[in-house]
């Protein structure tokens, strides 16, 4: 079996059956467009959740005032706790400034002394910013000497965890249904185009073609259709994002984006989809019984 002949036949299929090829490409494009938009929404939701998580800090209030060397020691201890990304010390004066910024009033007007304690603000590393991990970090910090209390938005993190988990399950389920639908839709479209060629396939068998020689051009043609469908879906998504979604994302101050790798993935997915669709469809026509009806 000649490789050049197989390749030539694969691409000749496009020329010989233009309308069927266009229908297949269109079907792949639409399937990938739906799948692609869903993946983008899912990915951006995950990014959005991560952005919220990254804003959750731990506030560590100290029971008594620390000397400079004690502050350095405490900073070192806190930095060495697994999951802690950054440690910043907030002096009584800094705390007073923050209070004034937040509430618009100063202690000097009411009290003689600044009652706010020294504190630390800990930012959390990615991967640790979920309710369970933050709780473990908070528990370790609370055990340290001179630590009065640890505060963080525990309920918000728990809520994010619950919602993200539910969204993950739903996204996985819907994604699977969409992927399955895409395979079935593309396979059926390809099956129809191959069904139209069933007499040709039978003749090929009768003149001595092996199943592989018949099958291979169909598979390559299917993958080729899928790749073109993937390119079209990528272009459509890119146009929609460039002209409609990105301006909106700037207005909403939310980072919604599509990476170049995503488009490459979509094109590869198109090729795989076309290939799998062809494998499913051509198999049926080649598996016909050896003993035919008389």
């Amino acid at each position: 079996m000649s490789v050049s002949y197989t390749l030539k036949e694969s691409f000749a299929g496009f020329r010989r059956n233009r309308s069927a090829s266009l229908i297949t490409v269109f079907t792949v494009s639409i399937s990938l467009l739906l799948l692609g938009v869903f993946v983008i929404i899912t990915m951006n939701f995950a990014t959005f959740v991560d952005q919220i998580r990254s804003r959750v800090d731990l506030e560590v209030f100290l029971s008594s005032e620390m000397s400079e060397s004690q502050q350095e020691g405490m900073t070192r201890i806190l930095s060495n706790i697994p999951g802690v990304e950054e440690v910043s010390f907030i002096s009584k004066e800094d705390a007073a400034k923050i209070f004034k910024q937040d509430f618009g009033e100063s202690f000097d007007d009411i009290l003689d002394d600044n009652p706010l304690p020294q504190s630390y603000r800990l930012s959390i590393q990615e991967g640790y910013n979920n309710a369970d991990s933050v709780q473990i970090i908070a528990a370790r910090v609370e055990k340290l000497q001179m630590v009065e209390s640890v505060h963080y938005r525990k309920q918000l993190l728990q809520l994010i965890d619950r919602r993200a988990r539910a969204f993950g399950y739903a996204a996985g389920f819907i994604g699977m249904i969409l992927a399955l639908s895409a395979i079935i839709l593309v396979a059926n479209t390809i099956r129809l185009t191959i069904y139209a060629k069933r007499h040709i396939i039978r003749t090929m068998k009768l003149v001595g073609a092996t199943s592989m020689l018949i099958r291979l051009p169909f598979l390559i043609e299917g993958a080729f259709h899928g790749i073109i469908g993937g390119v079209i879906a990528s272009l459509l998504i890119d146009i929609v994002f460039t002209f409609f979604i990105q301006p909106l994302s700037e207005d909403l101050l939310v980072n919604i984006g599509v990476s170049f790798g995503f488009y490459i993935g979509l094109i590869i997915a198109g090729g795989v989809l076309g290939f799998i669709g062809s494998v499913i469809s051509i198999g049926r026509f080649l598996k016909e019984a050896l003993v035919q009806h008389v």
């Binding site: 000649s2 059956n17 040709i200 003749t203 090929m204 001595g208 092996t210």
Partner: peptide, 24 residues
């Protein structure tokens, strides 16, 4: 006849040789 309707006379005859892997 059972000709391959999607290809021309030359390609129809050539097909029987292609299946054997004959050279161009």
């Amino acid at each position: 006849y059972r000709l391959l309707e999607d290809r021309n006379v030359f390609e129809n005859v050539a097909f029987a040789l292609h299946v054997t892997g004959a050279r161009h």
